[in-house]
Design a protein around this nucleic acid. Structure first.
Lengths: 341, 341
DNA sequence: TTGAAAGCGTTACCAT
DNA sequence: ATGGTAACGCTTTCAA
């Protein structure tokens, strides 16, 4: 049987209330009493029951981390994200509870909110899924503070932490332009709404700034992340009358796929064709040649998401908290000067 | 204000006890009543308060995952481990609570046990740290079910899930022997007690089986994982009068380091020297040449650890649960025939 | 400065 | 089959 506050009060011949006050640093306790209590805590090895405390205080100091990603596919993303989150949370005396099986089941999120087993929720949900807006509404209805990540919402009113993909795609495109490229392909992925829109906007913006006309035949939409589509897109790019001299892929895996397709066809990267990815996954650094890409400060995003959530919980601001973090252009071997000039 | 059981009982003109029974599937409730209750649950959107339930039932259906690894350094290990764990836990209606800041602080583990905010603990603690035995004792004293991972304990009485490193090192050594190698170096790492002992035993065992004399000059102990030491060990290996024709490194990073040292010195791998790692980290598959190594079924280990912990919690067996999983030899390009024959 | 008592939302025991 | 009541362990209000 664990030691309870009652044991303490018996031992000390004090009331439970006084002991509780001493424990919680109230001012209406004599310092002599406080000393005695603290000493007894040490001796008896008292630790408050989390359940009792949670019930009474109506909060748990736990944050839910709802992950709706296939872990393996984004291993390094999560491995960077989670420790940052946990560190910030634990500094604030909170802990993270993991929920990995809530995809496509609003009901479970609703139950989670109503059970009040967490004080707030961080939703790591792929940017593609449209139901996230409904999800946010649901949590708002349950008065459950929540932050989305890593996606931006055009809807106002939703708190999120995301990366500035407009800037990222712009920087990447400018980099290619500065290497002399004029026909720059872009394989986009409309599956991931805002993110796709942002990266496309950055790409188009950089072209516009450089006075290069936007050529729709250089922009191909992938139907999904299935490699099959990318392979077809890649062929389409190269079979054009005036094929691109550089191609920007929506994500690193798509670019890495292109790298191996190029090798098969004896297309030299970057001498014959420049290739760039996006996201800066670990694997992008070890391909041959290594991939030029855009990296996100994932760890910072995690930290910021927790900080934001804690703010929502503790300060209850009326306005949502929205952070868009800068990204970093990572220039490596897969991009080089335009061979056609 | 969330809906409570009291609201339900008012709405239905039933006592709270009856409602509770209906909710918990007791047999002493008429099925008509149960129907009414369940309907009301749906209508009012009732969800039991986790805190109240935890307090009353004296359990939380939460498992603590105490991680004392630098996340980044073992990113792919954790990324494989955690989802497997979470999946098994959630199937059993448990959730994982993450604790990442408990290193070197027994007190926090003790508090965690006493607060009873988890029903059991999985300790992912590097095999090196000796204090783990004390830690286990501490949790046992607090009657907190716990499982260690991924390390074996020679002490009986401690539950763990680990990989069979004797077998792994034996398979690796046999592989080298079958390639004609007779002088096989081994850089061990005594820092990680049992694991080091096991891998060394596997190495020595394979040599013995093949009738090759154990040559102490071919076994070098690294003081730590600091690359500095490995570089020195590597030079020591090669400066011997009869240098090894193959070297087995305690972990993949050490082997990868050797790979780049070899490249610097224009030693061809595997033509001039065979190199093998251990652990099967992701990076081992993308080096040039790719590394021969031993892979662990990390995901299975995670699943098994949770299953074991749940068993300890729910069935309270008197004996500890100990699992040693088989490992898999992964033959890749870094090992080849002995050039000296 | 201290303490008595109520209450957080459940579940379990014992009557009815 | 149903309900009253106590109890889980804590914090808070109010009175002394």
């Amino acid at each position: 049987m664990p030691v309870t506050i009652k044991d303490l009060s018996n031992e000390l011949s004090l009331s439970r209330s006084t002991v509780s006050k001493a424990l919680n640093g109230r001012s209406d306790v004599s310092s002599a009493t406080r000393e005695r209590v603290l000493r007894a805590v040490d001796e008896l090895g008292y630790q408050p029951s989390a359940a009792a405390r949670n019930l009474r205080r109506q909060r748990t100091e736990k944050l839910g981390l709802v992950v709706n990603y296939p872990f393996q596919r984004v291993a390094d993303f999560l491995a960077e994200l989670i420790p940052g989150m946990a560190a910030v949370a634990e500094d604030a005396e909170y802990n993270l509870i993991l929920y990995t099986s809530m995809a496509g089941n609003e009901q479970r999120i609703k139950s989670l909110c109503r059970s009040r087993e967490v004080d707030g929720i961080i939703v790591a949900w792929p940017p593609g899924s449209s139901e996230t807006v409904a999800l946010s509404q649901l949590m708002a209805d349950e008065q459950m503070p929540h932050v989305f990540l890593p996606r931006r919402f055009s809807n106002a009113g939703i708190s999120f932490v995301a990366a500035d993909h407009v800037q990222g795609a712009r920087a990447l495109t400018q980099h290619l332009i500065s290497l002399g490229h004029r026909r720059i392909g872009f394989e986009r992925l409309p599956e991931v709404y805002e993110t796709d829109g942002d990266r496309h906007a950055g790409y188009a913006g950089a072209l516009r700034d450089a006075g290069i006309a936007y050529d729709p035949s250089l922009v191909i939409s992938a139907k999904s992340t299935d490699p099959h589509y990318h392979t077809r897109s890649f062929r389409t790019f190269l079979s054009q009358p005036a094929p691109p001299t550089a191609i920007l892929f929506f994500t690193d895996p798509m670019a890495i796929n292109a790298l191996s397709l190029a090798k098969e066809q004896s297309i030299r990267i970057p001498q014959d064709l420049s290739i760039a990815g996006y996201d800066g996954i670990l694997a992008s650094g070890v391909t041959e040649p290594a991939l030029t890409t855009v990296g996100q400060a994932v760890s910072d995003m995690g930290r910021l998401a927790v900080e934001s959530l804690l703010q929502l919980i503790e300060e209850q601001p009326r306005a949502p908290i929205q952070h868009t973090l800068p990204v970093e252009l990572i220039v490596r071997g897969s991009t080089g000067p335009n061979p056609k000039i």
